[in-house]
């Protein structure tokens, strides 16, 4: 396989609202500053699953098609704080192939927002 294609995704509040509707996760920490700060968060944060979905998108686009991911997992180590402006923040997905055997390719990803690694040890296994 070719070298992993690193990607950048811009995330705004509007993206979080759209993802809330599509996923059914209406936790107000993802759209209400008031609730987010009341539980000690620095502000409205992206759904961890939204960041994970962006990483999955980078993996599937690199893999060349849907339905090839057999394992996918990560920790959510740092919140992606999304400001209430038009710029939002940029989430960067980088990766490298760590193994290839029995028709399966293992990928180690690095998902960052600014200087923070926002996902912990994100890994995917895909069918070659």
């Amino acid at each position: 396989m070719s070298e992993f294609a690193d990607r950048e995704f811009r995330v705004t509040r509007a993206d979080l609202v759209r993802y809330a509707g599509a996923s059914g996760d209406f936790n107000p920490i993802h759209w209400s500053e008031r609730v987010a700060t009341s539980v000690g968060l620095p502000g409205v944060i992206a759904h961890g699953m939204f960041t994970m979905a962006l990483a999955a998108r980078a993996v599937e686009e690199w893999a060349g098609g849907p339905g090839r991911v057999v394992e996918f997992g990560c920790k959510f180590t740092k919140p992606v704080v999304v400001p209430d402006d038009d710029e939002g923040v940029v989430v960067r997905v980088a990766g490298r192939v760590t193994g290839e055997a029995d028709g399966l390719i293992s990928l180690a990803l690095e998902v960052t927002c600014g200087d923070d690694k926002v996902l912990g040890a994100p890994k995917a296994v895909i069918r070659a």
């Binding site: 599509a22 059914g24 962006l54 599937e60 849907p66 996918f72």
Partner: peptide, 24 residues
Amino acid sequence: FAEATGAPYDERIAPPTFPIIVAF
């Protein structure tokens, strides 16, 4: 779901994190 995550839309096959809907 694909549009909300910017994933390429496939009319048959779900993106990898789609099962979170049911898990949620």
